[in-house]
C-alpha cells in the first residue's frame, strides 16, 4: 500500500526524470564541458587546454577563467567574416528552400487525399540514403565533366563547361537539396490543419483564389513557414560537410573554421568559443520564433 502511495505522489516526477537525465548526461554535460574549454587557454599539452582549477606547487588552489578567446573572436576579421558568411548562406538557403518547399507542400495539400501520403513519402525518401553519399553524388552531377555539364554540352546549350563545383552556387544546391524536406513537412502540416471552409468564405466574400491565398492561407501558415525556416537556417549555419565537399577550399563558413581550429590548429579553446557563440545565435533565433508563434492571450 505504501509503495503505491509513494508512486502516486512521485509518479509525475518519475516520468520527467528519465528525459531530464538523458538531457543532463548527453546535452548539458557536454555543453558545460565545451563552455569550460572555451574559458581556458590553449596550451601544448594533452588535453590542449589549461584547467580552470588547479593546485599550485605550494598547495593553494587556483581558479582561472579567461575571456580571451571571445575577445579574439570578435577582434579577428576571419571569425567575423565566417560568422557573416555563414549567416548569409544559411539565410539565403532557407529562403530558397521556402520558395521551393512552400509550393510543394501546397501542391501536396491540394491533391486528392489518396495521393498525399505517397507524395509525402517521396519527399522524405532521400533520408533513407546516407547523407554523405547523397552529397558525394552531387559532385558527380556538378563537376566540370559531370552529368549536368555533359548533358548541356551534348545538347549544345553551352560550349564550355559551367564552373559550379567549388563555388557558392554548389553550396546552395547542396544545402537546398538536403534540407528541403525540413520545409515541406512543417509547412504541409500547418496547411493541412487549415479549415478549408475559410477559403470558401473568402471566395464567398469576393476574394479571387490568389487574393484568398495571400490574405488567408499565407498568414495562417506562418507558423509552418517559421518552423521550416529555422529547421533549415539552424543546421545550415553550422554546416560542415556540404561546404567542405561542394564548396571551394576558400569558403569561409563557421563549420569549416571550427574544424580547422579544432583539428588542424589544435586550438580547442577558440573552437569551443566559436561553438558557444553559434549556440547563442541559434538560441536567440528560437526565442524569437517562440515569441512570434505564441498563441494570443485568451479573453
Amino acid at each position: 500500500m505504501k509503495s503505491r502511495d509513494w508512486l502516486r505522489s512521485h509518479g509525475r516526477a518519475l516520468v520527467i526524470v528519465v528525459p531530464a537525465l538523458w538531457l543532463g548526461i548527453f546535452f548539458l554535460m557536454p555543453f558545460l564541458n565545451v563552455l569550460k574549454i572555451s574559458l581556458a587557454e590553449q596550451v601544448i599539452a594533452q588535453p590542449p587546454y589549461s584547467p580552470l582549477f588547479y593546485f599550485s606547487e605550494s598547495g593553494d588552489w587556483h581558479f582561472k577563467v579567461s575571456l580571451d578567446n571571445y575577445r579574439d573572436l570578435f577582434n579577428d576579421d576571419l571569425y567575423i567574416a565566417a560568422f557573416l558568411n555563414s549567416t548569409r548562406i544559411a539565410f539565403i538557403s532557407a529562403v530558397i528552400c521556402l520558395l521551393i518547399g512552400y509550393p510543394m507542400a501546397y501542391g501536396i495539400m491540394r491533391t486528392t487525399p489518396s495521393w498525399r501520403n505517397p507524395l509525402l513519402m517521396l519527399v522524405a525518401l532521400p533520408f533513407w540514403t546516407s547523407f554523405l553519399l547523397r552529397v558525394y553524388a552531387w559532385i558527380g552531377i556538378l563537376n566540370n565533366t559531370g552529368i549536368l555539364n555533359n548533358a548541356l554540352l551534348a545538347c549544345g546549350f553551352i560550349d564550355r563547361p559551367l564552373v559550379i563545383m567549388k563555388t557558392e552556387v554548389a553550396i546552395y544546391i547542396g544545402i537546398v537539396y538536403s534540407y528541403l524536406p525540413f520545409v515541406v513537412l512543417p509547412v504541409y502540416s500547418t496547411l493541412e490543419k487549415m479549415d478549408t471552409t475559410l477559403l470558401e468564405a473568402a471566395a464567398d466574400l469576393g476574394a479571387r483564389p490568389f487574393a484568398a491565398f495571400l490574405k488567408i492561407t499565407l498568414p495562417l501558415s506562418w507558423p509552418g513557414i517559421l518552423a521550416g525556416f529555422s529547421l533549415v537556417f539552424i543546421p545550415a549555419l553550422g554546416e560542415f560537410v556540404i561546404p567542405d565537399l561542394l564548396g571551394g577550399s576558400d569558403t569561409l563558413m563557421l563549420g569549416h573554421v571550427l574544424w580547422d581550429e579544432f583539428f588542424a590548429n589544435r586550438a580547442w579553446p577558440i573552437a569551443s568559443a566559436v561553438a558557444i557563440v553559434m549556440l547563442l545565435m541559434v538560441l536567440g533565433l528560437l526565442v524569437l520564433q517562440n515569441k512570434v508563434n505564441r498563441p494570443p492571450p485568451q479573453a
Binding site: 479549415d195 471552409t197 470558401e200 468564405a201 471566395a203 466574400l205 479571387r208 488567408i216 498568414p219 495562417l220
Partner: peptide, 20 residues
C-alpha cells in the same frame, strides 16, 4: 459564375471566421 462573382453571400455553419 464563380462564387466570388455571385451577388449572394453565405453564413457558414461553422461561421468560418478568419481567426487571424
Amino acid at each position: 459564375i464563380p462564387p466570388y462573382d455571385r451577388p449572394v453571400n453565405m453564413m457558414f455553419q461553422s461561421y468560418a471566421l478568419f481567426p487571424h
